[in-house]
Structure formats: C-alpha cells, structure tokens
Design a protein around this nucleic acid. Structure first.
Lengths: 366, 366
DNA sequence: CTGTTAGCGCATTCAC
DNA sequence: GTGAATGCGCTAACAG
C-alpha cells in the first residue's frame, strides 16, 4: 500500500494535524518539528492522494473563461466546448462562468480581466490580445495569485502560467510548405488573408508562412496581407476585389477566421483555374469546402482539447501541482478531404463511445 | 450542493446500505424497495462521486498490456509509454503488467491472451493480429467479463470493447493524397513497403492509399507491395533491390515500420533524383530523415495518447461508465519538417510544463 | 431482506 | 505549538 498521512505521523512521531500543517505549509509548527516531518515524508516516499484531499475539502474550482464575441465559427465552437465543460461541472468539481468581450478590443478585454480579478476565481482562461495593457492586466491577476491560462492566442510577455494553443509559427510554416508543394511547378502569386495583426496567433502564422515561402518557394511572390477582421462580409469583399483586380493568383492562405466570406467569393469563380487554398479551423463551412475541392487543406486546432486542457492546467496550478506536459500539447491537425473525421454534433460532444463495439469504429481524440 | 447517497436514503425512506445495494446492482433488495430508491435517484438527479467511491473501495485496476516484441522503434516507444503509465500507477490506482509476444505470430498471441484471462485482470489491452484464433481468444476474455481494448491495430470481427488507434484507411488515403500532390506533374511509378499483410492496420493503410492513387492519380502506377516484416535489415535489402532493378520510381509509401532500413537504402543514392517518400510513425530515425529531406512527410499516431486512452477506457469499462468519445479519438498527425514538435526525451515523457512560463512555450499534446 | 457502523485518506475545528 | 475528534461521499462488514 502507498503511504498515508498516518504513516508520516507515525514515522515522525507527531500527530496527524501537525503532518497536515507541514503538508499544507501552514504556520504554527516549530522548525525542528517541521524538519522531522519533512524528512519522514521524504523517507517513506509519500505522495498526497488528491482525490481524498478534494473530498475532505469539498473543493470546487471557480473558473472564468473570457472569450471574444462575434460571428466567428471557431470562437462559437470554442464557447460550445466551454459550455460542454460546464455541463460536466458537477463531476469535475468546477464552476465555470463565461465572459464575452468584443473581438479585437484590448480595452474591453482589460476591463473583463479586472472584473474577473474582483471575483477572485481559482483561475482565468483568456483568448489574449497582444497589447501592453492586456499584459499588465494579466500580470495583476498573477500578482493576486490567480492562475491564468491563455487560450488559442498567447501573450508571451506576460506572467501567464500556461498557453493552451498551438505553435502558430509552425502552423504558418506548415501552411507554406503545403502551399509550395501543392503548387508544384505552377507559377503565380500567393495572397494572404488575415483577421487582424493585433492578435498574436495571426501574426505568428504569417511569420511562419512567409519564412517558408521566401526561403523554399521564392518563385511565388506574396501579395500584401489582407485584413478582414474575421468578418465574413468584409472578407468576401476583399477577396472579390482581389480576384477581379489581380491576375495570376495561384494560391490563397487564409490564416484567420471569416472563411465563409472566402468560400462565397471562391464559389463565384467556379469553372476558372483552380486556386490552391489553405485555411485554418475546421468548421461546417471549411469542411464542406474541403469536400467540394474549393479548399485544399485545413489546419485545425481542436477547441475541445484546448478547453479541457486549460481546465486541467488551471486545476493543477490552483493546487500547485505539476502539469503533465505531454497530455497538454495541442496539435496542429492537418485535414485533407481524405482524413476528415466523421461529422459530430457541433456542441454536443457526445459522450458516446465511438470506436466502440456496436457503433462503427472511427478513431478518437485527446 | 450536489445530492449524496444520504439524500437518496432520506428521499426514499431507506438506509444507506439499501441505497448502495441498488446503486451497485447487488442482490437482496425487494423490487418494490428497489423501485422506490431508483425513483428517488432519478428525482433528485443523483450522480455518483467516483473519486469517493474509489477511495472507499481502495480500488486498484490490474491491467495487462500485450505488446509485440522485436526491434521496432514504434513498438518500443509504445512500450516506453506503458512503462511511463506504470510509473504513474500509484496515483492512477492502476497496476499494469506488460506481456511481450513475438511479432506477427497469432499462435503466441492467443496463448498470451489465454494466460491473461487466467490472471483475471480488470482489463486487457492488446496490439491485435487479424486472425480467427485471436478473435476467438478475445471473445473468450469478453465472455469472462474482462474488458478488452485493441491498441494500434484493430480486430473488428471480435467483441473488443474499444479500439485505441487511428483510422488507418483514412491514414492511407491521406498518404495517397499527399503523394499524388507532392509528385505534381512528375511521372514515374510508386512503390509500397509494408510490414505484413497479417496485421489489419497495414492492410487498411494499403487499401486507403491504393484507392486514392487509382482514382485521383492514375498516372502513377503502383509497384507490387513489398513486405519487409518491419525488419530494418530485410527492408534495406528489399529497397536496394527495388531501386537497382527498377527505373523511374518516383515515390515510396512506407506504411509499416522498419524505416531504418528504408532510410539506409535512400542514403546510398544521395545525389540522384529525389524520390518522394511518405512514411509512418515519428521515431528518431524518421525525424532525422524528415529534417534531412530524405522523407517528405510522416504520418504519426501518438503512442502516449493511445496508451493513456486505453487506460482511461479500460477503467471506464471496468466501472461500467460511459467513455467520453471526443477525448479518446486518436488523431492522425501529419508531420512535415516544418511542424515537427520539439524533441522529447524518448521515454521520459517529462511531467514538466512545456508551454509554461520560464520554459519556452511550444504547444502541447493530448 | 434491511439497517448500523466503521473506515478509505485527508482537512479542519476545537481543545489542550 | 500540538493533538484528538469529526466529517467529506461512499462501500463493506456485520447485525438484525
């Protein structure tokens, strides 16, 4: 059997209460006694049973998720995943609230962060905007000893505890590599469509993409970056303009959201020469476009995994325990029309056992 | 607060013991009483606290993992992941033993399965071989009410509870799609290198690959499949022969293991025209080859994820609770040299928090 | 058939 | 400063 607090107490010749004080670094123990207990812990190799501890404490973790509002399939999917986590709350001992803020608005985000701090939660997850004010607000949270995890878009200059998202530079590089190879010998320039250079993930993807294109595929000139604010209507206009004003566009890299607009614009030129399109995030729209051959590849980050990972990490940080790195690494999924996962009920995130007997096997996630 | 067994007892006007009997479907309760209790449970919306239950039971889950022996980087990596899980055993309340069997040997596998059954574990995970005898052995385990999860290679005809692995048909299709597009306008035939057609994952990959090549890229003829038994030396010989005897090989799809031999053979022809190579499983060898440009793409399944998933599912099956599908889906990772994850200490599976402050952020897993 | 009671590993209140 | 006692939600003897 694995050693318990009783064993420590016996080994150190003290009572349970004293052991507990040492374990939870509370005051009221002579340093000699503390010493004794710590050695006993070391000696018998004690590791705390977190489940039992949580039971005794009736612990619940109040978390706040701050997400951008707006008509953006990916973000709405992310929110659905948070809601799914809320549904699991009783089992996971969490109590999660969602705060919605206008997209690409640093001021509003700062206000939301400060408000979150006032609520004194056990942790905050936030889709960051890269600005000094936001960094300062995050650091205030940390100064108040509230764990912070950035979600999807990181904030490297800050004291955030962890980033639950993909390596966006690598994602951009991958997009560049695929673009270059898919274009093969063809000539023509390549356009880049972003949401906003305010958010770090978009900037990083652009950097990665540009680096690979410049170095490995210099034959394809890059057009100036278009910023569509992740707004479908605006994106559609931008792409319409691009395709009518420019000749010889061989590829488009859409590194943000608002792909609905892009797809609408592409549909209008059915019959003309194929443009190689690489986009981000698997949504009902990009999935359909992939199947139709309008989009050649989709790079995806699994929103469900990101949310679950953020929660696991926030819990770990709140408890001051180490997180298990390998489990929290968010992958860049590359989807061609050949490896699309079977469609799932958007938010439902069915607890059914796919890949099980009875139901058809089909490969799984996390 | 969430309702407890006491609340059920009060609501149904019975004692704790009776509630427990109903909850755990034990005998010795009049059906009227049972009825009453069940209605109370339903009415107050009770959900069992598994952590508390396990605490009370001091439950441990004895699991057996049956893995193929042999000099195969992927399988050794898989084993390392199981060992990592064993290291976590005290915390996860598991007790895992590893059984090693000769690769591609159905008879030995059947013997191992029967032996496992005799040990009466709480669950068995097995890298399956597709044969009627093995199916029968797995079904015997199930008949003995022992949960079985297939790992990496599935056994669809059997009663196995779950498959922890990737959709190999999709993997093959993806390989085909990448191969076709990477070859672009080039002419030439494509060779396929497998381990053995005895294991289902290899067969499925071949089927998927062939389907896409035939349909979308008929210009590239497929050479007869080479079977290298996942043995590096044998593979090297096969590829050497192929490349000297055949002209105009434009691509090679290596759908099994033994890539060390393939890479060795490729190295010998440095300077000659590039052959587009797509392989499976990210190992130190394929990683290096990807970086050197010898391999163009690697399709990977995350062994760590597969092992952790298998354990989660076995636990769930042992407890008779539903598994959370989304979390158990094993992805097909596509690696180009541009999105290689940072190197990790092979088996170490460091519990350090990558992507955390202090240490460089770099994206995470599961 | 049903109820009482002790205890899993840990945290905490209140005495000493 | 330290210890004894009680309870978190659930299970498992053991009585009745």
């Amino acid at each position: 059997m694995r050693p318990t607090v009783h064993d420590i107490a016996a080994a150190a010749g003290v009572s349970l209460a004293t052991v507990d004080r040492v374990l939870n670094q509370r005051a009221g123990v002579r340093s000699v006694t503390r010493e004794k207990v710590e050695q006993a812990i070391e000696r018998i190799g004690y590791v705390r049973d977190v489940a039992a501890a949580n039971l005794a404490k009736s612990r619940v973790y109040p978390f706040i998720f701050i997400l951008p509002a707006g008509d953006n399939s990916f973000m709405r999917g992310l929110e659905a995943q948070v809601r799914a986590a809320i549904a699991r709350s009783p089992v996971e001992r969490t109590s999660i609230s969602i705060v919605s803020v206008p997209a690409f608005n640093a001021e509003a985000l700062v206000a939301a962060l400060d408000e979150a701090q006032a609520a004194a939660p056990a942790g905050v997850a936030v889709v960051a905007i890269d600005s000094p004010d936001v960094i300062a607000a995050v650091n205030r949270l940390r100064a108040a000893r509230i764990p912070v995890v950035t979600l999807v878009s990181d904030l490297p200059g800050s004291q955030r505890d962890h980033f639950a998202g993909v390596d966006n530079v690598a994602a951009g590089r991958t997009a560049g590599s695929l673009m270059g190879r898919f274009l093969g010998g063809q000539s023509g320039s390549v356009a880049v469509l972003a949401g906003s250079m305010l958010v770090r993930d978009h900037r990083e993807r652009l950097d990665g993409f540009r680096a690979v294109m410049d170095q490995d595929f210099p034959g394809h000139a890059l057009q100036p970056v278009l910023e569509g604010q992740d707004d479908p209507a605006q994106v559609e206009r931008l792409i319409d303009d691009l395709l009518t004003s420019q000749e010889g566009i061989a590829g488009i890299y859409s590194l943000g959201a608002g792909n609905r607009g892009l797809i609408a614009a592409l549909k209008k030129r059915a019959g003309k020469a194929h443009i190689c399109v690489i986009a981000h995030e698997l949504t009902p729209h990009t999935r359909a476009a992939l199947n139709d051959g309008l989009i050649d590849a989709v790079l995806n980050q699994d929103a469900g995994h990101e949310v679950r990972s953020a929660i696991r990490v926030l819990k770990a940080k709140a408890d001051g325990v180490a997180v298990f790195g390998a489990q929290e690494r968010i992958r860049i999924d590359i989807f061609l029309k050949d490896n699309l996962p079977f469609e799932q009920d958007a938010a439902a995130d069915t607890p059914l056992d796919r890949g099980s007997n009875q139901e058809p096997a089909q490969g799984e996630e996390d």
